[in-house]
Design a protein around this nucleic acid. Sequence first.
DNA 1: CTGAAAGCGCTTACAG
DNA 2: CTGAAAGCGCTTACAG
Lengths: 356, 356
Amino acid sequence: MGVSLKDVALRAGVSVKTVSNVVNNYPHIRPGTRERVQRAIDELGYRPNATARHLRTGRSGIIALAVPELGNPYFADLAAAVIDAAAHHGHTVLLDHTAGLRTNETLVSQGFRSHLIDGLILSPIQLENEDLLRRTDGPPLVLLGEREYDAPYDHIAIDNVAAARLAVRHLLDLGRRRIAFVGARRETLRQPAHLRLRGWREEILRAGGTPRDELVVATDGYDRLDGAVAMTRLLALPEPPDAVFAYNDLVALGALRVLAERGLRVPQDVAVVGFDDIEDGRYGGVSLTTVAPDKAAIARLAVDCLIARIEAGAGGAAGADRAAIVPRRILPGHTLVVRESTTGRARAAEPRLVPG
Amino acid sequence: MGVSLKDVALRAGVSVKTVSNVVNNYPHIRPGTRERVQRAIDELGYRPNATARHLRTGRSGIIALAVPELGNPYFADLAAAVIDAAAHHGHTVLLDHTAGLRTNETLVSQGFRSHLIDGLILSPIQLENEDLLRRTDGPPLVLLGEREYDAPYDHIAIDNVAAARLAVRHLLDLGRRRIAFVGARRETLRQPAHLRLRGWREEILRAGGTPRDELVVATDGYDRLDGAVAMTRLLALPEPPDAVFAYNDLVALGALRVLAERGLRVPQDVAVVGFDDIEDGRYGGVSLTTVAPDKAAIARLAVDCLIARIEAGAGGAAGADRAAIVPRRILPGHTLVVRESTTGRARAAEPRLVPG
DNA sequence: CTGAAAGCGCTTACAG
DNA sequence: CTGAAAGCGCTTACAG
């Protein structure tokens, strides 16, 4: 440790500028010079110091991805996709974990660690609009997920209302009439922004039904246990639901577990649809019908947007005026993956995990 | 962006040294001075530039954790625990993803990104001993996981042989006599270091049984699909097993899925034990008996070891001679969590997910 | 095509 | 208790 440009320059008998040129692949270098420098680099085992470069250029080549829960496979998948997409741009990803807490999300968005990163992709849960408006500086920011904000930042998310309606329509088509919605987090229950809940409501109304409040169960979080608790409450109803649309797959899996414990048949007694298409959903005793967001597209679009903002900021005339930013809203696609938890059999495309 | 120590010094009418002292909480500063400086800091919204500090001190306050698969909840849990433990030492964690590939693991261990981090915790899959011996410089390194190496690095892992024997003994105690081992990765099959397989063998021999080769199924990876494929092969045997000990929970869950598809009863027809104690295992149609490593202890010990090495290196007289490092091997604890997949009922301590 | 020099924002002996 | 100055390892106008 400790071989610097200067050491290489000394050995090759050139200036540090020339070594820097070789390292950075500048076009116009005399072949002999390049060769001599390259040999010195190899002999000395020189490797550029990213920190010094960062200090000088103001660019680290690192972007951060802040997600609420790494333990949720959805975010693990998303992280993998973001890492891929960033690699295409020669960027490294720093993974951050907010636990879905407002304080952490605010901290991250305010530019905690901002000297380290060129940009931030944030998937917020509790962050409020005012937290975002209070953000005065910090690197470019791209938002992910269901929450909608009135702030000058790009936002990438599938059309959650449409996706939820797709799921509910599927249940209606199967003849279900008492469809519960499980997983509305308490503090967001009143917000108009709770898009999946809105989709549930709209689709039931469209079909001529009545969205019943007693069939909407608020939860503390979005985890399996929350789904289990909610399902238990639903089964205690005088007239339990014949279908459940869960906020996400983890919640749905918790619900499935309780149904299994009670000896209820899925989907005969209760059909279940999740959201996210995590791998776990394919491997339970009953495989899970779910809404599959196009994660690769989400990741790619988010990274592309962010990189564009970073580069615009660098070349920005008169200092990229934040107020002048026109935020982009992009809607990647989604599909409904039908499996046993609604139809009682695996779909044609994946009849069985293993043939035989 | 752009407020430096110098700006603060100018405003407060002191030297940069004094500002630096205030920022770093040096004890002996005249109260009036500190106050004046603090006010300037607040007014200007100054925040120290971590990159410059890193360049100067050689310490970034960042440690890297490189794991094979973020999608495996075991590693997600472990990552969360490491982040916690590192925070106690005022360190930030950079998460790295190797996909369990030798090239990536070598790259990471060789000090890719080494200028950014103070130390590395690596959980290798395919890394070979020679890859490790070829490591000439790079920051302190702590190894995690089942693979054992003859190289001068600390290694934190539970006693995998003992843990495997515990699992197999449980199956033997239940009267099972044809116990399969599923999940030996092909390329590691011949290695004596495949500790869980060794535990399986030893425990069967101890009980007076015969470890049968046809009951050991190699897999391509350690994922659900691998478990499903392996289980399918086992069921095609003339005499299928009456129990399965899986390399990890994901493999076990894949096996459970195939058993469910075939209409076989768990545990009556086939009992299943996994390894890792991931949350998914508690929520299937049949909850999974599993070996639970003490993840918090693993994380804490790994971080403690690493920080100790980092600080020793910094203060090391005559440059911490790598050959002089005496590697530490530490064995955190583990327990067997008995659930439905072996006993047919949830254990007393967690009878049902939700009472009622 | 290449060199000499300034400077990114810090910390840290060295003085006083 | 505080200041002036060097230097961490780079990149980048500015010359030539």
